[in-house]
Design a protein around this nucleic acid. Structure first.
Lengths: 161, 161
DNA sequence: AAAAGAGTTTAGAATTATTCTAAATCCTTG
DNA sequence: CAAGGATTTAGAATAATTCTAAACTCTTTT
């Protein structure tokens, strides 16, 4: 469970821990991403944020997103040649990119599998992150599939609830 | 094993099978990618190709690359925000992106693991391709690690040799 | 409390990989 | 050989992102 004020507190803490300042812009960008459980682009986030803070600039949205990614409060999703998307789900998960609808679905990954993935690396290869993306068709899945308990609970950033 | 002329023959066959024409430009772009076992960008490929065919245009290189990808003769590698790279290795493999050197290493994937990856998908999700990318540091690996027998042998396009 | 200084935001310009366009060229087939 | 589709080409256009420099906002120092 995570209330907006808990999220805000976590954001503040993370920023200060990194020597950064908790600003209104960073707050609102973060809040907007958590509100909807999808994978918006910077432009979409810009649009959503503007309704709450009409004076914010696109450059600031980009800046805030970079900061949030660095603080590991959101994830970045890179699909081929398309604008970068941002993901509030901090569970270990893969992405399924539906080629027909363009939708992105989160796919939960068992911890064992993650371990096996890392085992595949030869000695000397030290991975700090893994990105797993499927591409194909998701027949009969009209809605994005992010189960409610995958919500990015910031009190529990690694999603072990 | 695959000689240049065998590769060329396979290219021709694939193109014709797809209703496309085997052109000198497609040949040379393909050849140049096979020659070196790395992950060049379109610009790098353009440079290499120009030395053999000085009149070729960048747009054509992009066109050829798209065609080769569609014919599954090469793979496209998407790293975050960086120019698309192209990969002649048709084995099932992951990519390791070394953050310090910028190098990309091919990581062989056991078939069982690939199967397990697909098992992770809920019913209805039909993946036509999977992309697995690690990011981190590859300590003490000065050279790209593409074992010789990972060469994209076109006679054996799925790399089961 | 004023001044200094670091961090942040902002608008707009700049960058750059890629795609688009329209004309020219090349094959293939009737 | 003529017609028609596919392909190539140069250059323009696009669009996501980054850069720049000035303005602003905190925090800390005096």
């Amino acid at each position: 469970m995570s209330t907006p004020s808990e999220n805000s507190a976590t954001l503040t803490k993370r920023l200060i821990d990194s020597g950064l300042r908790p600003t209104a812009q960073r707050e609102v960008v973060f809040k907007v991403i958590l509100e909807k459980r999808d994978h918006p682009t910077a432009d979409e986030i810009f649009a959503r944020v503007k309704s709450q803070m009409p004076t914010i600039s696109l450059a600031t949205v980009y800046n805030c997103l970079e900061t949030l990614v660095q603080c590991q409060l959101i994830r970045q999703v890179n699909l081929e040649r398309a604008p970068t998307r941002y993901c509030p789900n901090l569970h270990q998960h893969a992405h399924f990119h539906d080629e027909t609808t363009g939708q992105i679905h989160d796919i939960d990954l068992p911890i064992e599998l993650m371990a096996q993935l890392h085992d595949v690396l030869p000695a000397g290869f030290n991975a700090s992150s893994v990105e797993l993306t499927f591409r194909g068709d998701a027949a009969g899945t009209a809605q994005p599939t992010v189960p409610a308990d995958c919500a990015p609970t910031l009190n529990n950033p690694h999603g072990t609830n």
